[in-house]
Design a protein around this nucleic acid. Structure first.
Lengths: 119, 119
DNA sequence: GCCATATACCTATTGCCTATAGGTATGATG
DNA sequence: CATCATACCTATAGGCAATAGGTATATGGC
């Protein structure tokens, strides 16, 4: 579709990796490689984010103060566990709210029922 | 949030303008300026896409064969009405399916394990 | 002992698509 | 006769996902 529909930037994925990572870390501490697989499994293969997406994102979130990290050796291998900070929690709430409002708004348009003002 | 949370590329908007434009044009022929306002109104002000987003998108969609256009004068002003082509219909179906699968997958992850969103 | 696979981390580069910030021109309102 | 609404337009910036590499250790098969 011309410039649209690229190989990179597939439709609707903007912000989704961040939301998923934050949401997964809300339940428990996890490490990068584990997060990659958890996203694939918990979305039923619908979302499949490579390590090249997740690792830079984890670093950016940590730099931004949303995550803290802890390095440990498990079975002779090094793992870096990430945990949500209070700031990460509020960012998650923010993104969840945005996502919720957007999906509701789009649902209304897609379903073809006009906007119902008021409430 | 560091590199995240930019002024441009706000979360979750990737692909949304295209989906909205195609969906609106499914009901009837519309012109650009009208689409801009329809998006604002029908999403209940949740989505507000400026003309600088919509016009280039309409041009790209027409170039890609998803839309056809028709120029008319109304009240001494020039309007360009756009209509969905068969290709635009299948593109809309494709995007709608993608959107549906993504929202369902995310819903599952977001609501999982009784997460109570912050007030 | 060796080699493929799984685990576990990493970075550099590409490029789409949204957002911003302008611009032109006509009709209507006060 | 100026301001606002209508109606079109383009150029530029930049964030974020995707790709495609890379390093290194453990494990199981042959």
């Amino acid at each position: 579709m011309a410039q649209l529909m690229a190989s990179t930037n597939p439709a609707f994925m903007n912000g989704v990796p961040e939301l998923l990572v934050l949401r997964l870390l809300r339940s428990r501490e996890m490490y990068g490689y584990e997060i990659v697989q958890a996203i694939r499994e918990e979305t039923g293969e619908v979302v499949n984010l490579a390590e090249g997406v997740i690792y830079p994102l984890l670093h950016a979130l940590e730099r931004g103060g949303a995550l803290t990290s802890r390095r440990t050796a498990v079975n002779g291998r090094s793992r870096i566990y990430y945990a949500l900070s209070p700031r990460g929690v509020s960012r998650l709430d923010e993104l969840t709210g945005l996502w919720s409002r957007l999906t509701q708004a789009l649902h209304q348009v897609i379903k073809g029922e006009g906007y119902v003002p008021g409430v």
